[in-house]
Nucleic acid binder design. Structure first.
Lengths: 335, 335
DNA sequence: CTGAAAGCGCTTACAG
DNA sequence: CTGAAAGCGCTTACAG
């Protein structure tokens, strides 16, 4: 690793191109008031010197970081991937980039997961996780909540999918297949609460008995497995299950397999999220698509409009979820 | 969103605490030459003003970003999660933070995925993905390759698991169970090449016929499914499969299910990575643990030692992988 | 377009 | 410990 010469600065570029430092800055910022030949000379010098503007200097001098901070729960649950993609697509045109921070990874080092972002002076904050008491929100920076959350953040915009409606539709689908013994396995958090409510709406409307099992705030595969074991023990007559998300649905399939139940012949299962997992050949899981890519695009719009008008009142966008039928639901046996 | 007063600076803190600006800086940098009462006064002022040092100013003035850039392939394949955790643990003591960039997400916006990091002036680069020709490595910044890669980066340190040995052990395990008709489904990239080599080593040593199927550079569930279909069509006598990674193994299980083969009774399957997926109740996949957390710790050590001595020669760390026996392997039927 | 100037919010010596 | 000073690498007016 040769100890290189110091990195090129804007001065070096100006000198190499035979122009003023100001002109280089204009080229960098894509100003139209630069003649073609000079612009070419500057670009050539940039390339030759392998010059890259210092982000620190740009941010400090320009007074703007041009980045939006996104907080997610945990890299392991990949529902956020499409959200990020949508966000990034929606923000790119405005020259904004994304920085993502994962709560579980940073749990050890800093109490407030927002500290890093606030030091970076991010332009806005997108929360794709449950807000916690450890998060101290600055009133000076726009906050957009992505997804349904149990905790409110004053003044924040909200973009979420209608989880309540999605769960209701899932149950209505099961009912239309003749199921009456329908259980729901759930975790914690805002989305779970909405999905539970939707389950209740549909069961009540059909005059069916509810059976909801929760053993943890978590919504992992293992928790789904545990909930399902408990449900099948308590109500062996169950013929269909709505899981709080796709990971839990996978756990439910594991429990069914262990109990010798065939899916969907003996037990119908519906997941939630339309995650990459649900679309595997092994699972072919019927699920509810919460349209996370669209959710990301809407969140991006909210960031931009809020930046353009910091005074505007808080918005709320609610997307309609879609039932994705695959192979884990079947008509009830002796309906 | 009340238009706040401007953010507090070090001047405001100094004034509020009744000390000099330099003293505040000393407190921020945890200097021992600050008396307890003054330190307390400064900390109180920081808290009261909700002051957070500007990262841009700190980086620019200090000449160091204190961050290490990590490039991963794709958020969807979660093998990198434990790598990140190890890296972060190993780097935290030195006050270094991590910034991660995902290639697939950034593929659209910039040609060189390293551009952002170089603008940030990261202290070092950790590559948890295959290096591409689009990446222009600066000789001024340490590069650590995590995992086996097909492309070399001159002067870079390498920390990887011994994929060749891991694959060999997996095959030896199958052979010890009496299998002789053993296929391998593989993707592309450095790790895949090593795993293929290990498969060959073991098959050759046992005098068995090789059957390797590759249909894509990718190593997704769907590709694993396709490879397996092809393998079973070409060699229906196959009783065991080593998959290039856990996702592909899941695809293999999907293909087996579709073909009416029971795992492990009719078909034994071994994955690779010991990913969260492999440890689900539904899969209980026998796999090879490449010890990604330890890999992250070693990569962190390499970053630190390289930073301490930029002139030291390139290192190579090779970790020994572990076979994790779960439930997808069984003795061959009529051995 | 140029050129000189001020400033962004810090760090880093350095004389007292 | 303080206080004044220079500097990090840019952006932003502004007079020419």
């Amino acid at each position: 690793m040769a100890e290189g010469r110091r990195r090129a600065t804007i001065y070096d570029v100006a000198q190499a191109a035979g122009v003023s430092k100001s002109l280089v800055s204009l080229v960098l910022r894509d100003s139209p008031s630069v003649s073609a030949p000079r612009r070419a000379a500057v670009l050539a010098a940039i390339k030759e010197l392998d010059y890259r503007p210092s982000q620190a200097a740009t941010a400090l001098a320009g007074g703007t970081s041009q980045t939006v901070g996104v907080v997610i729960d945990d890299y392991t649950n990949t529902w956020f991937v499409e959200l990020l993609r949508g966000l990034q697509e929606g923000l790119a045109s405005a020259g904004l980039r994304i920085a993502v921070s994962d709560r579980s990874l940073n749990a050890h080092i800093e109490s407030d997961p927002l500290d890093g972002f606030l030091s970076t002076r991010v332009e806005a904050l997108v929360l794709a996780t449950e807000p916690t008491s450890a998060m101290r929100f600055s009133s000076q920076i726009p906050v957009i909540i992505a997804g349904n959350r149990a905790t409110e953040v004053p003044g924040a915009d909200i973009t979420s999918s209608d989880d309540r409606l999605g769960a209701r539709r899932a149950i209505e689908h099961l009912i239309s297949l003749g199921h009456t013994q329908i259980g729901h396995i759930a975790g914690g958090g805002g989305a779970s609460m909405q999905r539970i409510a939707g389950y209740r709406d549909a069961m009540k409307a059909a005059g069916l008995d509810e059976r909801i099992v929760t053993v943890s705030e978590l919504t992992t595969e293992d928790i789904g497995y545990q909930c399902t074991r408990q449900l099948l023990k308590r109500a062996p007559e169950t013929t269909a299950i709505l899981a709080g998300n796709d990971s839990m649905a996978m756990g439910a399939m594991g429990a069914a397999q262990e109990a010798g139940l065939l899916v969907p012949k003996d037990l119908s299962i519906i997941g939630y999220d339309n995650s990459p997992l649900s679309d595997t050949h092994l699972l072919q899981l019927t699920t509810v698509d919460s349209r996370n890519h669209a959710l990301g695009l809407h969140a991006a719009e909210q960031v931009l409009s809020r930046l353009a008008d910091p005074e505007r009142t808080a918005q709320r966008v609610l997307l309609e979820p879609l039932l994705i039928e695959r192979s884990t639901c079947a008509p009830v046996r002796n309906a």
